[in-house]
Amino acid sequence: MGTRPLVLIADDNPGMVETLADIVAAAGFEVDTAPDGEAALALLRSKRYDVAVFDIVMPGINGVELIRRCRAEKLAPRFIAITAYTGSEYVNEARAEGAEAVLAKPLDPALLITALHGPARPG
């Protein structure tokens, strides 16, 4: 078991996944990536992640549904949502389901790194 926190990044934009993975890895985290909600859920079932960073609007299982399923299956990393849709309904829904932060695209990577270093996971 590594000592670096494990982060999952899920987004259907390949450029977003690649650039965020490089940034997060350079900041000292271990990183896995997924191109959509289904692949993210499969990974979340297979490993214990410290943080899941995901796009809210993805084809198939979207980010909000991803949180719901994780909670139902007692998979409980910290959730950080990212979105290009800044309409308040998406932000509110993600927060209501348990996202501790919702970052608007184009996001400030420094803010993401700060959010990743957030409060320690309980118990």
Partner: peptide
């Protein structure tokens, strides 16, 4: 669509 592209560019500049 534009914010998606801008986000990738901004990420790369940061990196």
């Amino acid at each position: 669509d534009l914010r998606q592209s801008l986000s990738v560019i901004r990420n790369s500049i940061y990196f």
